[in-house]
């Protein structure tokens, strides 16, 4: 049995592991089989992570976080969690391989996934003009024409942000009214670089090696047309990855795991959550890393207050496993 298992290997998971490992809690980190490193593995230049004045490649940053976590004794498993059992003092985590691991505490750092349009060319051109993160990639669209898809706050935010770089930003929305809050709408309406394309849905993305345009269908008349753009930012929402905890942990109205105040504590003792999976708002690498720190400290505090017999059990069995 372990003292702590961390599920997820983005900035939140690795940072939690660094803190937990330095606290001598010998964390087991379940990193995923094909998505280890998380969303940043599919980005290029990360220029807003403090400490890297020249920027750093997303995969390189994640490799360094992994190395730092392992340096202090984090054990990494490249597998996917298929189920968890969180009740009681001892939590059980089952992996794709069928292996089960037991621990006194669990940190969920499973992140969130960008919602996709579901178009065949969307994946192919991802990283070649198709993006889900304006604050990450907007800088690379200086003097370009961009389309943003979506009608919510995040779409307005992205469109407004992108006007810092782009000469023109189209906001493509399926309806003729926005879901976005009034203030965000007004900010977008008053920006002369933004042009709204109402009642339109994206039915295709064009471009051999890079985006050259999108194909639109009018949701009222059915008429189709092409709109030349060099970038397509998809802001139709994020889904926190909470499928493992349905029915075991409380969720917020936004669908994130509910935690108490500024802590990482879920309503279940010994179960903590950090990063995008608890954050419907900021979702930055550095806010996720900070959140991972909070979770590791909360878990450390929880473990320190457990009955000595349980902790002894954890270290004894661990020694047995090693032997």
């Amino acid at each position: 049995m372990r003292q702590i298992i961390i599920i997820g290997s983005g900035p939140a998971g690795y940072t939690a592991a660094i803190y937990a490992a330095r606290a001598n809690l010998k964390p087991l980190l379940i990193a995923s089989s094909v998505e280890a490193g998380g969303e940043l593995m599919n980005t290029t230049d990360v220029e807003n992570f403090p400490g890297f004045p020249e920027g750093i490649q997303g995969p390189e940053l994640m490799m360094q976080l992994q190395t730092q976590a392992e340096r202090f004794g984090t054990e990494l498993v490249l597998d996917d969690v298929t189920s968890v059992e969180l009740t009681g003092d001892v939590k059980t985590v089952t992996l794709g391989s069928g292996a089960t691991h037991k621990a006194l505490s669990v940190i969920f750092a499973t992140g969130s996934a960008y919602r996709k349009l579901g178009l065949p060319d969307e994946e192919r051109l991802s990283g070649h003009g198709v993006s889900w993160c304006a604050t990450c990639d907007g800088f690379f669209f200086k003097e370009k024409t961009i389309a943003v898809v979506g009608g919510g706050d995040s779409a307005m935010e992205e469109a407004t942000f992108l006007t810092r770089f782009a000469t023109k930003v189209y906001v493509i929305h399926r309806k003729d009214t926005l879901r976005a809050s009034k203030i965000m709408q007004e900010r977008a309406f008053s920006n002369e670089k933004i042009e709204f394309v109402w009642n339109s849905e994206v039915i295709g993305v064009d471009g051999a090696d890079a985006v050259t345009g999108v194909r639109l269908r009018d949701t009222v008349t059915g008429a189709e047309r092409a709109l030349p753009v060099q970038g397509l930012f998809i802001a139709i929402g994020n889904d926190p990855r909470v499928h493992l905890v349905h029915g075991q942990l409380d969720l917020t109205p936004e669908g994130t795991i509910a935690v108490a105040g500024r802590t990482s504590k879920t309503a279940v003792p010994g179960v903590f959550a950090a990063g995008d999976v608890i954050d419907p708002t900021y979702r930055q690498a550095v806010t996720a890393a900070a959140s991972g720190t909070v979770a590791a400290l909360d878990a450390e505090h929880y473990l320190a207050n457990l009955p000595k017999s349980l902790l002894a059990d954890a270290s004894e069995r661990e020694l047995t496993t090693i032997a």
Binding site: S33, V34, E35, A36, G37, M41, N42, P59, L78
Partner: peptide
Amino acid sequence: CGPCRAVGPI
């Protein structure tokens, strides 16, 4: 291709 590196060992 990051996902290529991930699937290679599998």
